[in-house]
Amino acid sequence: MTRHVVLIGMMGAGKTALGSELARRLRVPFRDSDAEIEAAAAMTISEIFARDGEAFFRAREEQVIARLLAGPVGVISTGGGAWMRAETRALIEGRALSVWLNCDPEVLWARVRQRPTRPLLQTADPKGTLLRLLAERAPVYAKADLEFLSRGHDSIEASAGRLLAALRRADPDLIEETS
């Protein structure tokens, strides 16, 4: 690949699962910014949010993404709110092709409703919170280089194949052909 592919979108859109498969097919490293943050802090995202708040977390997230973008070209998945920070968007826009994994709200809800590891959903109305976040974030997510519909009924393999084809159409020079 000639530059990073950075996956953005809501929690539950499939950034980690799809990113892992895409990287495997492209034979490039896969990095998950949330996993990198947890490893560096020796804490979960929920613990960081609880102890230090969202603003602190977003600043650390930006630092981790900058470090990942400075490393070997690969596929990077980001937390759902990473793209919302203008500074983080600017970092990504300068070094990567950004892909919004746009996913149906009901599919998102089905994927995240039983997951206590989502700090932003620890509210009295988690589904309402998810829908509100999606409504707020969608116009900013739409600034990504590529919008990809993440369908709930597709397998990871089928989605990765569709995404690979979409990447080739979006940037024919992105993926270097090997013989």
Rank of each mutant, 00 (worst) to 15 (best):
Met11Ala: 14
Ala96Asp: 11
Arg31Tyr: 14
Leu146Cys: 07
Pro126Arg: 04
Trp83Leu: 01
Gly12Cys: 02
Phe56Val: 10
Trp83Pro: 05
Ala142Cys: 06
Leu26Asn: 07
Thr117Trp: 13
Ala96Val: 13
Ala142Gly: 06
Ala170Asn: 12
Asp145Gly: 11
Leu133Thr: 07
Leu68Glu: 02
Val5Cys: 02
Ala50Gln: 08
Phe56Tyr: 09
Ser159Asn: 06
Ala59Thr: 13
Phe30Glu: 00
Val140Tyr: 02
Thr2Cys: 09
Leu18Asn: 05
Ala138Phe: 14
Ile37Gln: 01
Ala144Met: 04
Thr16Gln: 05
Leu133Gly: 08
Val73Tyr: 09
Arg67Ser: 14
Ala40His: 10
Ala135Glu: 13
Pro126Val: 08
Ile8Arg: 06
Ile37Phe: 00
Leu120His: 05
Ile92Asn: 00
Ala165Lys: 12
Met43Cys: 08
Gly53Asn: 04
Ala158Arg: 15
Pro119Met: 02
Arg111Glu: 09
Ala170Trp: 05
Ser20Pro: 08
Asp173Glu: 15
Arg132Thr: 13
Ile65Phe: 09
Asp125Asn: 11
Ala17Arg: 11
Ile48Gln: 01
Ala110Gly: 06
Leu167Met: 10
Arg58His: 08
Pro72Asp: 15
Ala17Ser: 12
Ser159Val: 02
Ala144Ser: 05
Arg118Ser: 07
Gly81Val: 12
Glu36Trp: 13
Val6Phe: 00
Arg51Leu: 08
His153Asp: 14
Ala40Leu: 14
Gly128Tyr: 00
Gly74Phe: 10
Met11Phe: 01
Ala50Thr: 09
Ile8Thr: 13
Phe148Lys: 14
Ala158Tyr: 15
Leu174Gly: 03
Thr117Phe: 11
Gly12Met: 01
Asp125Tyr: 03
Arg169Glu: 12
Glu157Phe: 13
Thr2Lys: 04
Ala17Phe: 00
Ile76Asp: 02
Gly9Met: 02
Trp109Val: 12
Ala17Asn: 11
Ser155Tyr: 12
Thr123Gln: 06
Gly71Tyr: 00
Asp145Val: 10
Met10Val: 10
Ala166Met: 06
Leu68Val: 03
Ile65Cys: 05
Val140Trp: 06
Arg162Glu: 13
Asn102Thr: 11
Ala165Met: 05
Asp173Pro: 06
Pro105Phe: 05
Ala82Lys: 03
Arg137Ser: 06
Gly80Ser: 03
Gly79Ala: 08
Val140Ser: 03
Ala42Val: 14
Val112Ser: 10
Arg3Ala: 12
Arg51Met: 07
Arg137Tyr: 01
Ala55Pro: 04
Asp125Cys: 08
Ile8Asn: 04
Ala41Met: 13
Trp100Gln: 11
Pro116Asn: 14
Pro72Trp: 14
Gly12Val: 00
Arg27His: 14
Ala90Ile: 09
Met43Leu: 15
Gly19Phe: 01
